[in-house]
């Protein structure tokens, strides 16, 4: 029995090895060849999942690459270990090695980034999805926040306008306050169009268990349940599990709404592309690029949050595939109302 378990364990470790870190991390020096001495040495610390998730982390990479294109500089990209226990070490080591600015991707860094920022007062830090207040508001930390609820509201409007069964669904990855913002916005958007439409909302894993962001099999089961119950459009905010939602949609003849990046472009499979009606874009790339640009210009104030919303096009809906072109006017009306404040989008369901 012990042996069997050990073999399983070893197999598991080996699989994990395959799943992560396919790419050696640092691109040390191959970009911005003759960059001046003041070209930024950018440190990028990923959320669990690391580079190659075709979603959140990759979006941050795209932003950094665009910034390097514009300003020169180099980047070191670090992923945390499987249980995320070395997040503080990632930031410390980056700071020790002279990386500046250092960008942490994901709200999970909120616990540690405050202390590190105080330890290295001369280094500029930014955290995607983390409010500076959660980290004790150090002067050298900038929070890059998104109005996910506003974008999700539009996704809800699109789903409610397009549904033929008057029944839609929402699949969240992990029941955290962040993902609840997606749910709240989506439900509000559906209700704004037609309060009689039924919305099924479900999470893949409960708070504290982060497997829900990276479990396509369970994502598929949850979404399949919704399609079987009569829903015809399902919106997911489940990171890597979203691919399972698309598969369930393809098999049930339903449709789905992607999240974070334009998943119609990233999904790589025509059968799944056909079901992706739109995606709720969260422009982490823009935010990161803009932050680095500000840093190069010396414009980072620090100690405050930058909020990316509908107005600044930090969030929005993708139009790839042309599935929502016919309702663009409706969407624009709601968009204007949100920007003008006529519609207040809730952040908790």
């Amino acid at each position: 029995m012990t042996k069997a378990a050990a073999l399983l364990l070893a197999g598991g470790l080996a699989l994990t090895a395959c799943a992560s870190d396919e790419e050696p991390a640092a691109d040390g020096g191959d970009t911005g060849g003759g960059a001046a001495a003041d070209a930024p040495k950018i440190g990028l610390a990923f959320d669990t999942g690391g580079e190659g998730d075709r979603s959140f982390n990759d979006s941050a990479v795209a932003g950094v690459e665009a910034a390097i294109e514009a300003n020169g500089g180099t980047v070191a990209k670090l992923s945390p270990n499987d249980d995320g226990s070395n997040r503080a070490d990632l930031l410390t080591q980056l700071a020790d090695q002279g990386y500046d600015p250092i960008i942490a991707v994901g709200f999970a860094y909120s616990d540690v980034i405050g202390d590190i920022a105080e330890q290295y007062p001369d280094v500029t830090f930014a955290q995607v999805d983390g409010a500076v207040e959660d980290a004790g508001s150090p002067e050298n930390l900038t929070g890059l926040l998104f109005a996910e609820e506003e974008g999700s509201f539009l996704a809800g409007v699109a789903a409610a306008t397009k549904t033929e069964a008057d029944h839609v669904g929402f699949v969240g990855g992990v029941e955290t306050p962040l993902i609840q913002k997606f749910q709240a916005g989506f439900e509000a958007g559906v209700e704004a169009v037609n309060p009689d439409i039924q919305v099924d909302s479900q999470y893949i894993s409960p708070a504290g268990d982060f497997s829900g962001f990276n479990d396509p099999a369970r994502g598929k089961i949850v979404a399949q349940g919704m399609y079987d119950a009569g829903a015809d459009i399902v919106y997911h905010a489940a990171g890597g599990s979203g691919i399972g939602v698309f598969q369930a949609a393809a098999e049930s003849g339903g449709r789905a709404i992607g999240v974070d990046s334009d998943q119609y472009q990233t999904v790589d499979d025509p059968a799944l592309q056909a079901v992706i009606m739109t995606s709720m874009l969260k422009r982490v790339d823009n935010a990161v690029e803009q932050f680095i640009g500000n840093y190069v210009e010396g414009d980072v104030a620090g100690g405050e949050n930058q909020r990316f919303d509908l107005e600044s096009e930090g969030v929005g809906l993708s139009t790839s595939g042309g599935f929502i072109d016919d309702i663009q006017d409706d969407l624009d009306t709601y968009r204007e109302q949100i920007i003008s404040g006529d519609i207040e989008v809730p952040t908790t369901p």
């Binding site: 870190d21 050696p24 991390a25 640092a26 070191a76 992923s79």
Partner: peptide, 11 residues
């Protein structure tokens, strides 16, 4: 962490 900084495969 140091392996990743050096650009070596952490796997």
């Amino acid at each position: 962490v140091p392996l990743q900084i050096e650009g070596l495969p952490a796997s």
